[in-house]
Write a protein that binds this DNA or RNA. Structure first.
Lengths: 191, 191
DNA sequence: TCGCAACTACCTACTACTAGGTAGGTAATT
DNA sequence: AATTACCTACCTAGTAGTAGGTAGTTGCGA
């Protein structure tokens, strides 16, 4: 792993724990073991770092959604896996999804970062809409309304549940907040 | 209105827009028109300010919940009013509920502030549980599961919907994210 | 294969500014 | 007289960023 990737990893951890305004180049320098000024070689401005952080996070998340779409047999299984992505992203309640962490401090972000943040949300919503449409056909999801509304509600629920768990550093709050959602999903089929 | 209250108002606006790490005593001094050092007379440390902010916010919110409980005839009406509190708190998508704004930067908060933040969430959840129990009796809310689960899911949905709307500064995202939730509520009775 | 120019990835040193906070002072108020 | 609510002046620490330097690496022509 090279220094540039190590810096991105360190920055992601810091941002997901404390938000964009809650970490500094000094934090990353200390974590990685290089001088603060050296970071500017890789990322001339902090906004450049933020842009690359969210670009790679969105790409990785899109890949994960594609894997779920390919691997899971029905809408319920896809939604359960989607839920799992958000639950795993929490760690033990010690960090948030990068986009949740960035959203609260959005006034500190540059236009390209905000564009990518909103694109992330739009793409998540679009993916979820397709899944809920599939659920309307395969019957594996209960209490469906409009697919786009269900999609946005699900995204909001995941982000909100993360915030509750993060506030108390208690993963079980995420589980409780999303228990009713999981109840809507048909159990996985035995094979 | 005295200076102390003006400072709390200014700090609340700033914190709800940019989070705890995103504003400073200098911002408040500039807004109110006193010197930065003068703020320390009212709030010796920034953490003291945060504590008073969240205390008064929680008190005000609890009062609002009591008013809703007293004024609304059934669970659906109470939930619609609750939804309205979160929607109104957004402004035009320019700010968040204080507890949402504080949650993302929770590592910067002191223990008393965190305790109050988590108490806020617990009290909201308890109030919502009672409302969902009422809904199970009066039949005004559809698709009920466990009252405590429904309560936490609702709180998460409101906080998450706020984040989505805040990220894009677009109130309609809040409305879309909560549309399915509102569909579960019986229409208000005509009198 | 070698020498060398260009480049990379760091370094030290520094700038300008911001942040939270303290100390001592003063005019107005109680 | 004591207290309050501000003030100026200043402190330490932190922040993002720049400039110039250097050792190591790379690529290429001879």
């Amino acid at each position: 792993m090279n220094t540039r990737t190590a810096l991105l990893d360190s920055a992601e951890r810091a941002a997901r724990q404390r938000g964009y305004d809650g970490f500094s180049y000094a934090d990353l320098a200390s974590d990685i073991g290089i001088r603060k000024a050296s970071i500017h070689h890789h990322f001339p401005k902090k906004a450049d770092l933020a842009r690359e952080l969210i670009d790679r996070y969105a790409t990785r998340f899109a890949d994960q959604l594609s894997e779920i779409a390919a691997a899971e047999p029905n809408a319920a299984a896809k939604l359960r896996a989607y839920h799992g992505l958000y639950r795993d992203a929490l760690g033990a309640g010690t960090q948030l999804c990068l986009c949740v962490a960035f959203s609260a401090g959005r006034d500190s972000l540059t236009e390209p970062v905000l564009d990518q943040l909103n694109t992330f949300h739009a793409r998540s919503t679009a993916w979820l809409s397709l899944v809920f449409e599939e659920g309307a056909v395969d019957g594996s999801v209960a209490n469906l309304t409009d697919a786009a509304d269900d999609a946005r509600a699900t995204l909001a629920l995941m982000e909100g549940a993360q915030l509750l768990a993060r506030a108390a550093v208690d993963l079980s709050l995420f589980d409780q907040a999303t228990a009713a959602f999981l109840c809507r999903l048909s159990p996985s089929q035995m094979h």
